[in-house]
Design a protein around this nucleic acid. Sequence first.
DNA 1: CTACGATCTCGACCAAGGTCTAGCTCAAGT
DNA 2: ACTTGAGCTAGACCTTGGTCGAGATCGTAG
Lengths: 140, 140
Amino acid sequence: MTTTGSPAEPLAIGEVAARTGLSVHALRLYEREGLLVGPVGRTSGGRRRYTAADVEWLLICVKLRESGMPLADLKRFAELVRQGPGNEAERLRLLDAHRRRVEAQIRALEECRSVIAWKVGVYAEHLARGEADGLWDPTA
Amino acid sequence: MTTTGSPAEPLAIGEVAARTGLSVHALRLYEREGLLVGPVGRTSGGRRRYTAADVEWLLICVKLRESGMPLADLKRFAELVRQGPGNEAERLRLLDAHRRRVEAQIRALEECRSVIAWKVGVYAEHLARGEADGLWDPTA
DNA sequence: CTACGATCTCGACCAAGGTCTAGCTCAAGT
DNA sequence: ACTTGAGCTAGACCTTGGTCGAGATCGTAG
């Protein structure tokens, strides 16, 4: 149990990369860009030591990124958290707006999916019949 | 009825932009990049004239782009269609692979949505209680 | 005929989000 | 002590998917 769960010991950047799926490069980028809530700890030698809380935040970041939140918004959110209590309404607004965008995106994708599925069906049918004549094909 | 439906008359680029939602710049880009099935017609003066089929293809392109298909794949698809009959299996593979990706993306987004919705719920609850103490907040 | 808006080509530019390199340091195993 | 693998910084570079501008041309309405 040295590479699983939520360790009490702070983690090196490579470990964090492994468990967040971000590259070490990306991790350093995120830090430079101010996407982290607090400054990352360092060893006496200058190496980053991520706490469990850091990793947790990064995992949230990953989810938000996956769902298309731009780094700038993530940064804004991190700033709000960094500022401490008092701005929860704004945090909520930010997250909720994003949730709405995600839902819209899901709906759009579902529509795309059905268009694509239909097209796939058309091709499959023609193939099954062995006669795939010029579907949208102006040259045939 | 001059700007609706599927006109028999070929359309100018601005018209096509209006009905596909792509900018004229993007339309020219797509053409340069070989995303169109056939060469676009031109007037004697050198202006593009898009046929209804061109527009239809572009609408498909828009859907595929919206669902995250990279231009390179779109180009590949256009090439296959351009080559004429005989490669329908590959076209099918391409589309179906994309469909799978879209579905995976939808699932991922749905997961993100639930994570976000939960977070939103946490904030909303704390706000309602008027006590939003350091949620993930290392400084509080 | 003339003016004006829409197009044309070509090439520069942009923003996001990373990735990669160079040159150096740190730390852990043997 | 030595080697080796991670990590460090700074900054250059990359890809995607466009956008924008200059300068010329087309074509249509007066």
